[in-house]
Each structure stands twice: as structure tokens, then as C-alpha cells.
């Protein structure tokens, strides 16, 4: 039905839908602690597993996590990928330089925290490396206070 295509309007929405998400009680505690350059996890009263960032429910045990635990600033790189592109408003662009995104097992946590890894080249990064958290000088009570992880 070729003639149908000719009659198409090709419209573009001139707007974005904006949203305001509440972070909720658990992430609020986590962000408040970032301001003090601390990383908090939450512990399940039944299985004892600690998850970071903190979340209200342990789905496996059907229990509310009520205890917050301060985690070590150091951990092991258990997984990583190297990014070569960035995405902005649907546009795929070449990254200025390849960047490493890692999944880190911090001391005291049972799951992995995702974070940027810097101070090591994509060629030299290895799973098993020991990393430590690096903070912004002036923390503001934002996710960005925890800037990246780098080799110990």
C-alpha cells in the first residue's frame, strides 16, 4: 500500500513529560549518609544479608529490613564493562574516551554496588582488583557525592 505512506504526517512531539520521583525513606537515609562520606546498607533480620543501596523489603524472607549498616569504603571489583558511547536524547555519540563501569563488592555488603571506576586504564582493569571509594571534596547530599572508585 505505497500510496498510504505518502499521505502520512510525520509528527514529532515538541515536549518531554517531566516527573518528580520521591526517593523514599530508605534511599533518603542512604543519600543523607553520602553527605557524611559514609556508605550505608540495610540488613535483613532473618537471613542477615546486607543490601546496598538500602531497600525496604527482603523479598526472599518477606521481612522489612530495619537495621542500617555502615559499609567499608573498600571493596573488590567483581564485574565490569567498558563504555564507548554515550546516549543523549536518543542520540548515540562516541564517548570522549572509553570509561569503566564496575560492580563492586564492598566490605560488609552481600550484593554489588555499581560505580564508575577511574585511575586505571581499560586495558589494565581486572576483576579481583581492590578498589576504594573517592568522594567529592564538598559533599552536598546527592548521589554524585560518591564520585568514583579507584585502585587502592
Amino acid at each position: 500500500m505505497e500510496d498510504i505512506k505518502e499521505t502520512f504526517y510525520h509528527t514529532v512531539a515538541p515536549l518531554d513529560f517531566g516527573y518528580n520521583y520521591r526517593v523514599g525513606t530508605y534511599l533518603q537515609r542512604y543519600i543523607d549518609a553520602l553527605k557524611d562520606k559514609k556508605i550505608l546498607g540495610a540488613k535483613c533480620p532473618q537471613c542477615g544479608k546486607v543490601v546496598v543501596p538500602p531497600r525496604k523489603y527482603c523479598g526472599a524472607c518477606n521481612k522489612v529490613r530495619e537495621e542500617y549498616v555502615e559499609l567499608s569504603q573498600e571493596g573488590t571489583l567483581e564485574n565490569y564493562t567498558v563504555g564507548h558511547i554515550t546516549l543523549e536524547k536518543g542520540q548515540v555519540n562516541q564517548a570522549e574516551s572509553p570509561y569503566i563501569v564496575g560492580m563492586i563488592k564492598l566490605g560488609g555488603a552481600d550484593n554489588l554496588l555499581v560505580g564508575k571506576v577511574a585511575g586505571v586504564s581499560p586495558q589494565e582493569v581486572k576483576t579481583g582488583m581492590r578498589l576504594k571509594a573517592v568522594w567529592k571534596d564538598q559533599t552536598e547530599g546527592e548521589y554524585s557525592d560518591l564520585d568514583h572508585f579507584e585502585p587502592v
Partner: peptide, 22 residues
């Protein structure tokens, strides 16, 4: 207490809709 708000958006301006307009 009230918790922090984080802003987000659905970037609809990147969407392209072909619509039959005969």
C-alpha cells in the same frame, strides 16, 4: 518526614510518529 525529590523525564521529543493523514 518528607523525602527528597529526583527529577526525571520521558523524552518524548525524541519520538517520531508516522500517522495516516490522507
Amino acid at each position: 518526614e518528607e523525602t527528597k525529590i529526583v527529577n526525571g523525564a520521558w523524552e518524548l521529543s525524541t519520538f517520531h510518529f508516522p500517522i495516516e493523514g490522507r
